[in-house]
């Protein structure tokens, strides 16, 4: 299985059961995940996420479970070299945007240029809509969610970019199903999609060819991501697509 949305590093608000890259890799491997895109949690809070990318890259095993997903902040003057070096010297397989934490709009010129440049570089872009339930945030550290519609609009504006909607919720994914299907360059990360019949309904709305297993580990329990799949009564073809094949094509692994 391939996990499209994992993290490593410390989280300022609570102790995580796994934090170092090797610990995160162990947790994922124990759950049967062979490969995972991992991005640094420090990048949410460091002024320049490049430092966080470099620190994480230095701690990843070559040919190991974890593949770097570099965080890029298009609002900083260095976003172009960060993007280029992420791919060329750090070995990143994708990039992640955190517009909520880094305070920019997805329709800003820099964000649009960044998406287009990632497309040209062949790096898929995860647009992370949220990291946690807004109600659980520190009262003085309330980071607004990124609207799913804004991420879709950004994907529409950059048809050469491959966009993954990270941390999207069930109601958003179902509500935007037609818009997602209408765009050939959009995928859905399942890490925060939850409802009693959520898997089946999101397959119906979006299609199993657009869904990607995501764990949100180590913030979320990996077992929850896997039991969610079981609850979806997936056919063998759906399971293969969601847990492996879609990600394999997207990441070229």
């Amino acid at each position: 299985m391939i996990d499209i949305n994992a993290y490593a590093g410390p989280w300022p608000f609570r102790a995580l059961p796994a934090s170092a890259p090797s610990e995160v890799a162990d947790v994922l491997q124990a759950a049967g995940i062979a490969r995972a895109l991992v991005s640094p949690l420090e990048a949410l809070f460091f002024e320049d996420p490049r430092v966080a990318n470099e620190r994480l890259a230095a701690r990843l095993q070559p040919e190991g479970t974890l593949l770097l997903c570099a965080v890029v902040n298009p609002r900083l003057a260095n976003w172009r070299p960060v993007l280029t070096t992420a791919r060329e010297s750090l070995g990143a397989r994708a990039i992640k945007l955190h517009p909520g934490y880094h305070l920019y709009e997805l329709d800003s010129p820099a964000a649009r240029e960044c998406l287009a440049a990632a497309g040209e570089a062949g790096l898929p872009v995860i647009i992370q809509l949220r990291m946690q339930d807004a109600r659980a945030q520190h009262p003085l550290c309330r980071i607004p969610d990124v609207p799913a519609a804004a991420a879709l609009e950004a994907a529409r504006s950059a048809p050469g970019a491959q966009v993954v909607l990270g941390g999207i919720r069930f109601a958003e994914a179902r509500g935007q199903g037609d818009a997602i299907r209408a765009l050939a360059n959009v995928w859905v990360d399942l890490s925060q999609v939850e409802y009693v019949d959520g898997m089946r309904q999101v397959i119906q709305a979006v299609g199993s060819d657009r869904l990607l297993l995501g764990t949100h580990a180590p913030l979320f329990n990996v077992r929850s991501a896997l039991l969610k799949l079981d609850e979806g009564l997936l056919s063998d073809a759906e399971r293969a697509a969601i847990t492996r094949e879609n990600a394999r094509r997207l990441l070229r692994v």
Binding site: P17, A31, E194, Y195, V196, D197, G198, M199, N221, V222, R223, S224, A225, L226, L227, K228, L229, D230, E231
Partner: peptide, 18 residues
């Protein structure tokens, strides 16, 4: 808290805990 939540995701909180 089903049906607003999924049985599996919620059960994973226990089965995946130390």
């Amino acid at each position: 808290d089903a049906p607003g939540r999924s049985y599996g995701v919620q059960l994973g909180k226990v089965l995946g805990a130390d």
